[in-house]
Amino acid sequence: MRKRIQAWLRGPIIAIGSMALYAIALGCFLALMLLVISMEEGGENLSSSTLDMTRIVVLLSQGIGFETDTLSLSIMPLLLTVLLIGLVWSFSRKICTDIRAYVSGVVVWIFINVMGTQSLPVGLLDWPALVCVKSAVVFSLGFAGAALSKDPLSGQLRELIRHHVSDGVRRTIRTGLMVGVIMMGVYLVMGLITVIVWGVLNRSAMDTLFADIGMGTGSRILTTIASLAWLPNLCIWAVSWLFGAGFHIGELATFTPWIGQGRSLPPLPVFGLLPQAVGDEGIRFAVVLIPLVVGFVAGLASMAMKSGFRIIVGSASDPLDR
């Protein structure tokens, strides 16, 4: 009976602890950024808006967008989302992964987020029910990851698969998953390289936006660091751009290797690094061939590697290999 009560009580500890650590760290950075901006611009003290901005970013990192008179933002900062899920995972793994802790924890987590939506200076793009669903998904992902990493059922499941699935099938599935992970990793690295190239090529456009807004050196550094929260988003967009599909930012802008139209975007410095159309047809053709080349190389590697299928062409000992 005592263990059951403790499990119910540990859920709120996980929710409150994760949210408190995340919000405090985020709030301290935002307070510093707003203070530096206020000092350099010489206007009103923006640090008084730290609490409201912290609540807005906490909600945004869970997919809950907002709108103002001039801006509507619903793009999740995926880096912050991953960090928040990681905090829930870490607290859950250390404290408790019982189902009762999950139920009580997710209820408290939803309550905290719903309370965070009250009296905001901006309008939310989601209904209250959708706010509850999105926040519950974030908590559930972190808690489920911790539960699966600790649950002995995962080990039992592996033993069950080992006894009922042949070695060839297991090796085929394992090799396929390995190839998929390697290809996704290569694509993301290429996306990161592309984002860096965009930044180098479009540095002057970003400097112009910084100058138009009137930001000093300290403000530029801190806002650039803050923009790193959207770095995974930019990498995914860059991968889509490399493959020829491109990406859209609402109805305001479209970017592909053939089109670079972003004149309707708000004057945010991070939008300054987005690409223009590629004029050289040969470069465009080479870019859209990247998925084919990466898939072909990854397939050949999986066939030849010892950890893959180990197909050796021309082996005298095993004629089936040929």
Rank of each mutant, 00 (worst) to 15 (best):
D207K: 12
V186E: 00
I161D: 03
V189P: 02
S140Y: 04
G180L: 14
T172W: 03
I161F: 08
R203P: 04
R158C: 14
S154F: 02
P121N: 14
T194K: 02
L141G: 00
D167V: 06
L157R: 00
G185L: 09
G142E: 02
L201T: 14
L120R: 08
V133P: 14
A205D: 10
F210E: 09
T194R: 05
W198T: 00
V131W: 04
T175P: 01
M184D: 05
A146H: 00
L157H: 02
L160G: 10
I196G: 12
G145K: 00
P121F: 15
V195F: 02
V137R: 03
S204C: 09
L188T: 10
G199I: 02
A146R: 00
T172M: 07
L209N: 03
V131Q: 06
W127T: 11
M215G: 02
R171M: 07
V131K: 03
T175Y: 03
S140M: 11
R162H: 09
L209P: 07
W127F: 11
T208C: 05
V165D: 04
S154R: 01
F139P: 02
S166H: 07
S166D: 12
R174E: 05
K150I: 04
V138S: 05
G185H: 05
M183Q: 04
V197S: 05
R174G: 13
M184V: 05
A144C: 15
L153F: 12
G176C: 09
P121L: 11
R158S: 07
G142N: 00
A144I: 00
L209Y: 04
M206W: 08
Q156S: 14
L148R: 08
K134V: 02
L201M: 15
V122S: 06
W198M: 13
G214H: 07
V186N: 00
L120V: 10
L130T: 07
P128T: 15
M190F: 11
I193D: 09
A205G: 09
L177K: 05
V197I: 13
S166L: 03
V186Q: 01
L153V: 12
R174A: 10
H163L: 12
I161R: 05
S135R: 02
G214R: 07
K134W: 02
A136N: 03
P121G: 05
G185C: 14
F139C: 13
M178V: 03
D207S: 15
V200S: 11
K134Y: 03
V189D: 08
V181K: 04
